[in-house]
Computed example of a mutant assay.
Amino acid sequence: MSAVDGKVPALLQHASPRLRAMIVDDEPLARRGLEIRLQAHPDVTIVGQYGDGASAIAALRVDPPDLVFLDVQMPGLDGFETLRRIPASAMPLVVFVTAYDHYAIRAFEASAADYLLKPVDDGRLAQALARVRQVRAQRAADAHCGQLLELLGELSGQAPLRLEDALQPDAIERLRREDRLAVRDGHRTVRVDLRRIRWIDAAGDYMCLHLDGAGETGETLVLRATMRELERQLDPRRFPRIHRSTIVNAARVVELRPHSNGESFLRLDCGQELKLSRSYRDRLQVLL
Rank of each mutant, 00 (worst) to 15 (best):
M1V: 10
D5N: 10
K7Q: 07
P9F: 05
L12G: 00
A15Q: 13
A15P: 01
R18W: 02
R18G: 13
R18D: 09
E27T: 12
P28F: 04
G33T: 00
E35G: 05
Q39Y: 00
H41W: 06
V44W: 08
Y50Q: 08
G51V: 03
G51Y: 04
A54L: 13
A54R: 13
A56Y: 12
P65V: 10
D66Y: 04
L70G: 09
L70H: 08
M74G: 07
G76C: 07
L77D: 05
G79R: 02
E81A: 14
R85M: 14
I86N: 13
A88E: 15
L93C: 09
L93Y: 04
V94N: 00
V95M: 00
F96T: 05
A99E: 09
A104H: 07
R106G: 15
R106N: 15
A112W: 10
A113Y: 04
K118R: 12
D122S: 15
D122G: 13
A128Q: 03
A128N: 01
V132F: 01
R136H: 10
R139V: 05
A140L: 11
A140P: 00
D142A: 13
C145R: 15
Q147P: 00
Q147M: 11
E150M: 09
L152E: 09
S156E: 10
G157H: 10
A166I: 03
A166H: 04
Q168W: 07
P169E: 04
D170F: 02
D170M: 01
I172H: 03
R174G: 13
R177D: 11
L181K: 05
L181V: 05
V183L: 12
R188Q: 15
R188T: 14
R195V: 00
D201F: 04
A202H: 11
Y206D: 06
M207R: 05
L211Y: 09
G213A: 12
G213Q: 09
T220F: 00
T220H: 00
T220C: 04
V222C: 05
V222G: 01
A225Y: 07
M227P: 12
E229G: 08
L230P: 13
L230Q: 14
Q233P: 00
L234Q: 02
P236V: 00
R237Y: 10
F239N: 05
I242V: 14
H243N: 15
I247N: 06
A251Q: 14
P258S: 09
H259S: 10
S260T: 12
N261Y: 08
G262D: 11
S264W: 07
S277A: 06
S277F: 03
S277M: 04
R281K: 12
R283A: 08
L284N: 01
L288N: 03
